[in-house]
Computed example of a mutant assay.
Amino acid sequence: MHAAAFSPRGGVARRAARLRGQSTIEYVLIIAVISLVVVFAGPQVSQAVHNQFAGVANTLAGGIHGGGSGLGGTSGGGSGGNTPDQEQKDYLEDMKSVTDKDPRDWTLEDQKKAAEDIAEKGTASVAFPKARDAMDAGTKFSTKLTNGETLEYRIVGINHDDLADGSGKAGLTFETTSPTLPSQRMNATDTNAGGWEASELRGRLNTGDLWSLLPVELQSKMEAVTKMTDNQGGGKGPGAPSATTDKVFLLSTTEVYGDLQSDGTQYEYYASKGVTTSNCSGASSSLGHWTRSVDPSYSALFRIVYSNGNWGDGSAAYTDYVFPAFSF
């Protein structure tokens, strides 16, 4: 081997500059030649070749793993993930399958995709106009319960409820519109002490027999959200609202009427209908049903929404219909 084969700084003369364009076989041959040089050359040259060898090895690794023309990659892009342009393309195609449909035809998966996109992008989401129009129109969705009954529900909130993990908003909140669940009591005895937080009905909706009526496909898409409610009860007068974490909940009177008590804030659906305590027709439903709000002046009563939209009270041990709500 002649000394002229090496650069004055100890590297192979300008060879490495073209390694990105070589095939894997050429890399192997280059490394083999360098290995022979290390064996037969003197210590000084060997050290220089050793340094160059490290550079070649790194180049080879980059070609194989970093998207060069080596194994496992293609020229100009790696094999480990999509480019931002491809990710954007995939996103648009994915959401197109949702927005091309009439919301009445949205599956549970479509509803979940729309909710997640709205939660991330707000009004800039391509699904937002469809969801808002579906909410304003009162479009109903449906799913089969485990007992074979059909549960109907509609969108009542968009980016309304706070996710319990603090990561932001749930994109869509739905309220049941069908009296599919049998009429239920709030508590075994006539007491509202502890409010919604301590109620028997809350436990059954979130972990008990009523929760088990919901199909797994629906359960898996529900998000745990934070609900603010006056949970004092006991006839002690209005209490400071406190937080509970729920996947299934009842609306409060404030979430329906907007100007009653301090249990959360009015949902967009009811606000769009102009619902107030003195203008109740937009809150009418197929049957009267429980809210999660206590009557703060009486120890035994929870608020009820009557079928004509007016509000009133019911004794906690009295059975009434349940129109649960949930968020995606």
Rank of each mutant, 00 (worst) to 15 (best):
S285M: 10
V28I: 12
N279E: 11
N279G: 02
S285H: 13
G148V: 11
R20S: 13
V56A: 12
Q219V: 13
E268K: 08
I25M: 08
D165P: 04
Q111W: 01
S252Y: 14
R204W: 03
E217V: 04
D295F: 03
G11I: 05
L29Q: 14
S220V: 08
S178I: 00
K247Q: 15
S315N: 14
T74W: 09
N51S: 08
S35G: 04
L214T: 07
N51P: 00
S252K: 13
Q47V: 08
M228V: 05
E268M: 07
E93L: 03
S75H: 09
K221T: 01
T276M: 01
T177M: 06
R9P: 01
G233V: 10
G157K: 01
Y318N: 15
Y298S: 11
G309Y: 00
G148S: 09
V248R: 02
L201W: 05
D190M: 03
G208D: 13
A48V: 02
T226N: 05
L108Q: 12
K144M: 06
L205Y: 14
N159G: 01
E197R: 14
A224V: 12
K89P: 00
P43I: 01
D209R: 02
L145S: 12
T245K: 15
L108E: 05
G68A: 12
P324C: 11
S278E: 06
S75Q: 11
G80V: 06
A5F: 10
V37H: 01
V12E: 00
S281H: 04
G195Q: 02
W211F: 15
S262P: 01
E255T: 06
K140N: 09
Y270G: 07
D133H: 05
G72L: 12
N192F: 07
A127V: 11
R104L: 00
M186S: 04
L218A: 09
A283Q: 07
W106M: 06
D259K: 06
T180W: 12
Q47H: 13
H2Y: 07
P129S: 11
D246Q: 15
P43Y: 05
Q266F: 08
M135T: 06
W211Q: 08
Q232K: 14
E93H: 01
Y267Q: 05
R15A: 13
E255V: 07
K121R: 15
A17C: 06
N310K: 07
S142L: 07
D263E: 11
S142C: 06
G10W: 12
N147H: 10
F141S: 06
G239H: 11
G62I: 03
H65F: 14
G288K: 02
K112H: 03
F302S: 03
